[in-house]
Amino acid sequence: MKIHVKVNGKDYTREVAGNRTLLRFLREDLGLTGTKEGCGAGECGACTVILNGKTVNSCLVLAPEVDGGVIETVEGEAKNGKLSKLQEAFHRNHGVQCGFCTPGMLMSVKSLLKIHPKPTVAEIKEAIEGNFCRCTGYQQIIESVLDATGQLKPRKEEIRRVR
């Protein structure tokens, strides 16, 4: 089946099989490998993209289902060679370790910030509940979001040092 989609503002028309998932479509047909697979079963959120304004697990969406759709992925986040405010905050605050959860995480946060420009910690936790991160323990991710939204209280030190 032929589908037409807009991904990160760019139009694509492709022939896809019925069993092509959106995740594999993005990664293999469009070469947008930023979006990752962590489970293929809707649990981990590594594959999160924004479809028509809402986050979805792209491993559980079929490519033919998104015909005519608008999709946002991690590759669309930096503009004109510059990190977005959100990406910069993740960079500053060590919101990234191995980076495998990061593309999906960014999409969930981006979607949250559209509804809550200044989210509370509880709202951030709710929004990224479906994005497993095995490395960071989430704290520095949450701080990155607070920083991006101008809510991070300045701290003198990252960690209390005792000699």
């Binding site: 809707g42 959120g45 999160t48 809402k54 986050t55 979805v56 697990n57 559980l60 969406v61 969930s108 979607s111 709710e126 929004a127 509940e129 479906g130 994005n131």
Partner: peptide, 9 residues
């Protein structure tokens, strides 16, 4: 039910 992504679908 599930997570935010899941509830969207």
């Amino acid at each position: 039910i599930g997570s935010a992504q899941l509830r969207n679908r």
